[in-house]
Design a protein around this nucleic acid. Structure first.
Lengths: 161, 161
DNA sequence: ACTGAAATCCTACGACA
DNA sequence: TGTCGTAGGATTTCAGT
């Protein structure tokens, strides 16, 4: 699907605040309320906007600790095997297969360091896991909503500075 | 602040769909619409809910490639230095200082591998950066909304399986 | 075909019990 | 906390460009 700058502006506005009125968004991007709604509906149908979600402070819910865990797996472990296994852990909030020495990288949220340890212990016990290498997060520096900025790969890197 | 199960259920409902009506949420958790609104207002004021955001499919916006980059910094680099530096890059959607060999881990989203390369090149040129070690994401396995699940560290790890 | 405007329905929000 | 009443937004329809 093709997105013009109006669509991008609307998405940016909705990422910033998903409960804004269509009139407000229209005022920001220079459109009428119904025009905005039409485009939003189209963006949802096209799959560009997958839904609307509350932004939650993990700390307020008790998730005070996070960690990244590299997974080293047996020879021919399928990504889907890893996906199925780690999806069972609510503490695993992110996972991806990656290039490099490790096969996968997990992002874990837990209530404390002891909790992290328990989860890693369990994951390390999965049949396909050979070894793990974990890093506890000391302080989070950036936590940006995904896709808030426009990807215009004209010449530079997208950064004006 | 203290959160009871009703609050958690409301948050879960809002994470699932932030544009639900208060009446719908109330129906799910067993409360009236205005009671739900009162709690939501309280949760926002307390900082448990920080806002409402549209969930966007990065691919639809052109972010087809992501990578994780470990940063090795000079002796006494402050976390705030790293934060200020990487915050200038819209491609850096996540960053944290971590334990282990590396000092920080960056999460980067870009339009293609070439774009990733350019960003890493620039970040590597930052004064405090000694070395970088990057991993391109092959496939994303899990991408959970933060804090969707309840942290009840009773005995196990939170996982029933 | 896409936009702006009007009409109807429904939700949010405050007051009261 | 639940119920009620009102103001305002959401959604549909219609006309214009």
């Amino acid at each position: 699907m093709e997105l013009d700058r109006l669509d991008r502006d609307i998405i940016a506005a909705l990422v910033d605040d998903a409960r804004q009125t269509y009139a407000d968004i229209g005022h920001q991007v220079g459109l009428s309320a119904s025009a905005v709604k039409r485009r939003v509906d189209r963006l949802r149908e096209a799959g560009a906007i997958t839904g609307f979600s509350a932004r939650v402070a993990p700390r307020a819910l008790g998730w005070t600790t996070e960690a990244y865990v590299e997974l080293f797996c047996q020879g021919k472990t399928k990504p889907s095997d890893i996906a199925l296994a780690v999806a069972r852990y609510p503490e695993v909030v992110g996972a991806a297969t990656i290039t490099g020495e490790a096969d996968a990288l997990l992002h874990i949220r837990a209530t404390d360091v002891r909790h992290v340890e328990r989860v890693i212990e369990r994951i390390a016990a999965e049949s396909f896991v050979v070894r793990t290498k974990s890093s506890i997060v000391l302080s989070r520096l950036v936590d940006a909503p995904p896709g808030a900025s426009p990807p215009e790969p004209r010449n530079g890197s997208g950064t004006s500075a």
